[in-house]
């Protein structure tokens, strides 16, 4: 992909251009933009890997797909240290209360990415008596990454969508995050 085609950081570049046009070398920009720039490029994911999708996620950490290039390579195994809950693999009825508890333990602001068909709708196990038919019934989901398992490229795309979402937030003033309440049972 050519540099110009990758529109991810264009607002930053515009900002820099604007500043330079006015001859400023001290940035007095909106603090929000800076915070969001920082946050979106250091997304720490908290992994809840239960099944096949988790193995495919491991390849992202290895050399060929190297996710460190995009600023989300730090993975944590404690909910206290994560920004985003990555649900990798089937969530069963027995696991569901635990997933909810882990989500509750994440510090705000927090995000959820549902990876794989299983987390989106139950996937191949939709007819099972012991599988949750979509984790969005339990926790609010920000990004869905379909696939069984998703290809590494799809993981990237999904996580970049999350980064874009983070960039649009207001840290100061206003409500930070308007999330629909999870569906009550």
């Amino acid at each position: 992909m050519k540099y110009e085609e990758f529109k991810n950081n264009d607002y930053l570049e515009n900002m820099v251009k604007e500043l330079q046009a006015n001859g400023v070398n001290v940035a007095v920009s909106k603090l929000d933009d800076l915070i969001n720039w920082g946050r979106s490029n250091s997304v720490w994911s908290f992994l809840l890997g239960t099944s096949c999708c988790a193995i495919e996620f491991m390849t992202l950490g290895a050399a060929r797909y190297d996710m460190a290039r995009f600023g989300f390579e730090v993975t944590r195994n404690s909910p206290r240290q994560g920004d985003v809950l990555l649900v990798l693999g089937t969530i069963t009825n027995k696991m569901a209360p635990l997933m909810k508890r882990l989500y509750d333990q994440l510090a705000e602001p927090k995000y959820v990415v549902a990876v794989g068909g299983c987390t989106i709708s139950g996937g191949p196990f939709k007819k099972s008596y012991h599988v949750v038919k979509g984790i969005d019934k339990i926790v609010p989901v920000d990004v869905y990454i379909p696939g069984c398992p998703p290809r590494p490229e799809a993981f990237y795309y999904g996580l970049m969508q999350l980064q874009r979402k983070i960039k649009l937030e207001h840290f100061f003033g206003g409500v930070n995050r308007k999330q629909p309440k999870p569906i009550e049972e």
Binding site: T50, S51, G89, T90, T92, K94, M95, L98, F125, K127, S128, Y129, H130, V131
Partner: peptide, 14 residues
């Protein structure tokens, strides 16, 4: 065990 029990054997029957 059972946190990833998906009932595959039961599903097979249908």
């Amino acid at each position: 065990c059972g946190y990833i029990h998906r009932g595959i054997e039961k599903m097979n029957e249908s």
